[in-house]
Every structure is written in structure tokens, then in C-alpha cells.
Design a protein around this nucleic acid. Structure first.
Lengths: 131, 131
DNA sequence: TTCAGTGCAAACCGTTTGCACTGGG
DNA sequence: CCCAGTGCAAACGGTTTGCACTGAA
């Protein structure tokens, strides 16, 4: 969240692998999850590189970034939607209801500009509730 | 966010001061902000105590807890509302538009239970936009 | 008197960063 | 050849925690 924005100029194996993985998955992974998944195929991959690229993608608007229980979660799907995070298993799911955007904007102070709208619902998922 | 829930049994100066301060303020302070504010009057107050009590209040539903830029922010007003966080100055403001709750619930998986709904809008506040 | 709560300081851990090296253009 | 990007490991900083002490009941 603090990495300085340096728009990417060169394409590398690592960048391609990271964005490809993020877009192929619906788990809203942490940086470490991405790192561990890719390390199988790219053993020399470093965690710092994963953080740098995930942060860059988020800043460029190529991914969503939100925080759950003190950890950053990334989402390769940037179309507007919300998230449900399970307190028990830590899983995150997409929710596709629409926000009343005109109403929202009406409540913002005049002159404020919006970069993102994050809706995060916390609770227990159905699976964890059964156990 | 990781402190184990131990419902408070004894009332102390510190607990009273912390919840009173949190309810008196509209700044959505971090634990450190609360600590620094109260330390003026209670010089022996410790940061750990502030964290423990703020976390406990959040778990008991006596305050709201959400995360902005890797930091926990606390809100003594637990009536349902949303937040706007300025990327530039770090300030957080309340927003009082209503969510379409029936629609939201319709999209949750059957069997899931909801503990909280956090709406966080990020951008630049009017003041920072002028500068 | 008892033990929940506190103060203190060290530990924790997710994230960031400095630096030498690598490889894309 | 050049310098953006990477790997590595150390540093960072917000939060948590172990332990001895304190004070509410």
C-alpha cells in the first residue's frame, strides 16, 4: 500500500505470471498466496516482487485491493462488485448487488472525488456455519 | 484484530476514558490517536491497554472497526452508516446513505450470517482537492 | 484477598525497501 | 549498453503478547 507508483514499462515473466494468476482465480488471494502458488513454477520468484507488482496493478486500476483482518486481498476482476469475508475460514466471495450510486454521490461533500467504493460484508459463510 | 475476546468485568479509569473519548469524537481515530489524546490527562496510560480495550469494544459491538491504509480505525457511533477516507490527508468522514439491505441479503449464500457491513469510499476530500 | 486489568517492553508478522544483479528493449 | 525490474535479506511499523504489578470489588 506504500509502494511508490511507477507505471510498468517492461514486461517480464514475473509480471505476466502474477496478473495471469490473479485473473484466473476467484479466491481474492493475499500476496503470499499468489507467491506460494507461482513459486511452484518459478522457484526463484521473490515475495517482494509479488508485492511490488500487485500494488502496482492496484494503483493502475488493473486490480482491486482491499483489507481483511489486517491483510491485503487482491481481486483481478475490476468490475464494480462487493465482497463477503468469512471470519472463520478467511475466505472471500463476490457479491453482485448494485449500490444506489446517485444516492451515494449526493451524500459526498461537494468537491470530493472518488477513487474506489469498497463494500465488505463480514460474517460466517454457509459452510462454516454448518460445522 | 487478534486480541482474544474477554468480556470486560471490572470498570477502570482507562476503560471509561477510552470509550468516553471514542464517543465524543468524530475523527474515527486510530489506536495511537486515542492513546496520544488520553495520555495528556493520564500520563501512565499504555498503548497496549488502548488496543486491548478498543478491540474489546469492537468485538462487543460497542464500536465499529474498519481498516484504512493498513491501520485500524475506530468509530464510537455504531448506528449503520458508511465512511469516506481521503487518500491525501487520511481523514475519515461519515456518510449516511442507506444500503439496499433486502437486495444485499438476497445475494448472500443461503446459510451465511452477517456480523457487519462496511462501506468504505476512498478518494480525495474537498479540502485536499482544492490544494 | 483475589484476579481482571494495566504498564512495559519485547515479540510478531505483513509489508516495504536498499542494493547488487539480471535481462528486456 | 542501459536502466527497469528482480531476488534477497534486512528494516519497518502497526499490533499483539508475556509477565509482574496494581487496584476494583
Amino acid at each position: 500500500m506504500k509502494n511508490t507508483a511507477t507505471p510498468s514499462q517492461r514486461s517480464t515473466k514475473q509480471k505476466t505470471a502474477i496478473i495471469t494468476y490473479l485473473r484466473s482465480v476467484k479466491t481474492h488471494p493475499t500476496a503470499e498466496m499468489v507467491y506460494l502458488a507461482l513459486k511452484k513454477k518459478m522457484p526463484q520468484l521473490s515475495l517482494g516482487t509479488v508485492y511490488r507488482n500487485l500494488d502496482a496493478y492496484a494503483q493502475e486500476g488493473k486490480s482491486l485491493l482491499f483489507e481483511v483482518k489486517g491483510q491485503q486481498r487482491f481481486d483481478g476482476d475490476v468490475s464494480p462488485h462487493s465482497h463477503f469475508a468469512c471470519d472463520a475460514c478467511g475466505g472471500v466471495q463476490d457479491l453482485w448487488f448494485a449500490l444506489p450510486l446517485p444516492k451515494v454521490k449526493k451524500h459526498l461533500s461537494h468537491g470530493a472525488s472518488v477513487r474506489s467504493i469498497d463494500v465488505l460484508i463480514k460474517g460466517q459463510c454457509d459452510t462454516c456455519n454448518v460445522r
